[in-house]
């Protein structure tokens, strides 16, 4: 206490000075319009800086939700691309072809790539509209796999990198089509069998889906031809494809919904049973 009094005797005038100036400035800011404006404006500049920094940090923590919205946008864009591919069919129909395919953005939450039969798990399930036998594509419109089974909120996907994978594919600009399969060589490479050798192909040609199934629309990118041979006595090429998508690091995926899949499958079954 004595020290406090000593301190006050010694520095009392300085403290008083500070107190009086604070009072004065309070008066100035509260009762003078010009000064008040400047004060508010300056503090806005300061507050703006702080808010900006805060937003930067929040943006970082919000990346997840931002990614989600970007994925939704991407899904719309890819839908449009597919629709454009089909729009050239130019057969007017009562149902708009533009809405034949729709995409569900999802996140890959589990995946294997180095097994003989690889699978993915997606974070959307039947509640979000994912059904078995739907195609799954990743970034760059590249294929990833086909939905095998679904629970309420999750979907199990057969990866392209699976010994059971058989996907109808084609080479861009050519008419022939073959079957895409994986021979357990490398997670970046797949093979095409059954591509007829009378079609001329070259290394570097783009491999796309043929659209001969209900699973994938045609024109989706798969990869480029890396190498091809014609085995002696065969009518078909043996093609090695380098995939566009690196399935070892896939984090986002889109499930393709085909609105008319059931119709097509039903019709084809009737044909078989005849």
């Amino acid at each position: 206490m004595y020290n406090v009094i000593q301190l006050f005797i010694k520095y009392g005038a300085h403290i008083l000075f500070v107190v009086l100036e604070v009072i004065c400035f309070t008066l100035i800011i509260n009762y003078n319009k010009a000064q008040k404006d400047i004060f508010i404006n300056s503090s806005n500049v300061l507050a703006g800086k702080i808010t900006e920094q805060r937003n930067k940090i929040l943006e970082f923590t919000n990346l997840r939700s931002q990614n989600d919205s970007l994925m939704r946008e991407n899904a719309n864009l890819i839908e449009n691309l597919i629709a454009i591919e089909y729009a050239t069919d130019a057969i007017p129909e009562s149902d708009s072809l533009l809405s034949k395919f729709s995409l569900i953005p999802t996140r890959v939450i589990n995946s294997t790539v180095y097994l003989r039969n690889n699978y993915f798990t997606l974070d959307k399930g039947s509640r979000q509209g994912v059904q078995p036998e739907m195609g799954v594509i990743g970034a760059h419109q590249g294929l990833i796999g086909i939905v095998k089974n679904v629970s309420d909120n999750y979907a199990g996907v057969i990866s392209l990198l699976n010994s059971y994978t058989r996907i109808s594919c084609s080479v861009k600009g050519r008419n022939g089509h073959g079957t895409l399969e994986w021979r357990n060589s490398s997670p970046l490479k797949m093979n095409i069998t059954g591509f007829p050798k009378h079609d001329v192909i070259a290394v570097g040609d783009t491999v796309i889906t043929s659209g001969y199934s209900t699973i994938f629309p045609r024109g989706l990118l798969i990869g480029v031809i890396e190498d091809f041979t014609v085995p002696s006595g065969s009518n078909n090429y043996n093609i090695t494809v380098k995939l566009f998508n690196d399935l070892t690091s896939t984090k986002y995926a889109y499930v393709i919904q085909n609105r008319f899949a059931a119709e097509q499958i039903k019709l084809e079954k009737e044909l078989m049973n005849e």
């Binding site: 009072i23 004065c24 309070t26 008066l27 100035i28 009762y31 003078n32």
Partner: peptide
């Protein structure tokens, strides 16, 4: 009518 300015 300039509260505080002259005082400060």
């Amino acid at each position: 009518s300039s509260p505080g300015i002259h005082a400060a």
